[in-house]
Amino acid sequence: MKLLLTILLLVHGLIHLLGFLKAFELGQYPMLNAHIGRAQGIFWLLGCLFILSTAVAFYFNQKLWPWLGLIALIISQILISLHWSDTKYGAWFNLILVCIVVPGIGEYVFDKRVSAEVKSLNDSKKIHFMNEEDTINPKFLPPIVSQWLKNSGGIHSDTISRVHLLQKGRLRTKPDGKWMPFEAEQWFSIPEPAFLWKTRVQMFGPFFLTGRDKLITGKGSMEISLLSLIPVVNARDEKGIDEASMTRFLAEISWFPSAITQPYISWEALGPYAAEATFTYEGQSTSGVFTFNEQAEPISFEAMRYMKTGENAKREKWKIRNLSFTSFQGIRIPIKSEVVWELEEGEYHWLTLEISEINYD
């Protein structure tokens, strides 16, 4: 679809070149009956260049492509209106341009807003970290959690305060729904527990969803929009949203195990290969159970989490199964996971993800 739209834009741009060539008498163009002066010819050339630039920038995901497209659209439509009898069919190409430029501008504004929110994440370097002697003392951590911290390399990562990662995968919105591919970017703050997750979900054809999920200063919120323009979900300041976001943060410390020793997380052993973690912050608490294999790798996380928010919010069993592990910057973490809801009517496998890149600061 993207390649087809690019080709259509390239053809549309090259057609504008005809107006420039006719204005400067560089050939015969019987399909253009109206007189085109040289001044107008310059604008036909500009229209051509802006549309071609838009096509290339759109194909290669350059950030400013929607604004190039907006300029191209304005120039093109003015020229088409001035010579309507000869060029009216070009308006159909401009309609296609409108259909990609408007959502493109919406996504650009969305990305800028998320970038501003990322800057608000606390970047304090004051991290509480236990020394190695403390971590093997059951008074502080269950033995399997201490082993996880050491085996993962987290015990040597006491300078980490920020985490940035890229994800890809697929999700669906109901148990029998169509799988939709997504790409996501996520930022974490460890000293003051917070995260911000941005995603783009490809629905079908040119239709997509953009989403932003966050936890900052103990407050959670989620936004989902169709084509970055039409709100679908806007959850904030309602029952369940803060706790649900905190539960997500707790589950995702698997990607930055140095957070194991942060004072806002407490631990209780549940046997040789399981431990319950409780995350307490800003007067709220949430808990979940990590289960480990013999190598002290966290193979699953399970918690009662709000599936929906608002007046009818209800906790359901939420589980993450970690499928494979690898090391980034000397820290071993799960990189492939599937997320399920265990409902009364059966298991709802709603998301599968893979970490493609992670950076620790």
Rank of each mutant, 00 (worst) to 15 (best):
N33L: 13
S81F: 13
P334G: 04
G346D: 11
A259P: 01
S225R: 12
T87D: 00
F292H: 00
L97N: 06
M130Q: 02
S245W: 04
L3S: 14
I75V: 15
A235R: 00
T210L: 04
K319R: 15
V145P: 02
F129D: 10
V340Q: 10
D242V: 10
S327G: 11
P30I: 04
V109C: 12
M304T: 10
I36K: 04
L323I: 11
Y348G: 00
I155M: 12
I260Y: 03
G13F: 00
K88T: 09
I36D: 00
I96G: 03
A303H: 05
L14G: 01
T6M: 05
H156G: 04
L353N: 01
M246H: 01
S152G: 11
I75D: 05
T135L: 10
G211S: 14
K174F: 11
E347K: 14
G37C: 09
L10N: 07
S254G: 04
L79P: 09
E252C: 12
N359C: 10
A72V: 01
D361I: 12
I260H: 02
S221T: 06
A91K: 06
K317Y: 00
N137T: 13
L121G: 03
T217I: 00
I100R: 01
F129H: 13
Y89E: 05
K139G: 03
K317C: 09
E342L: 15
T286F: 09
P181S: 14
A184S: 15
F93L: 07
V232G: 04
S161Y: 10
T261G: 09
W350E: 07
Q28W: 04
I299G: 07
E268R: 15
P181K: 14
Q262N: 12
F20I: 07
I160H: 04
W92Q: 06
Y281E: 07
E294Y: 06
D361Y: 13
T210H: 07
G37W: 06
S120A: 14
I100L: 13
V233I: 15
L95Y: 08
Q28H: 13
S324R: 14
A39H: 10
E347F: 02
H156P: 06
F110R: 06
E243S: 12
G37H: 06
E338C: 12
F188M: 05
Q284A: 07
V289T: 14
D123K: 15
G90T: 07
A72I: 05
I71Q: 02
H12I: 01
S327W: 10
L121V: 11
F60W: 05
F20W: 15
V145A: 11
K178L: 14
I320N: 05
S245F: 02
G154I: 03
K317V: 02
L270M: 14
H164F: 00
I358N: 07
I51G: 07
M130H: 10
A269E: 11
E302N: 12
E282D: 14
A296W: 10
I230M: 15
L52S: 01
V145C: 12
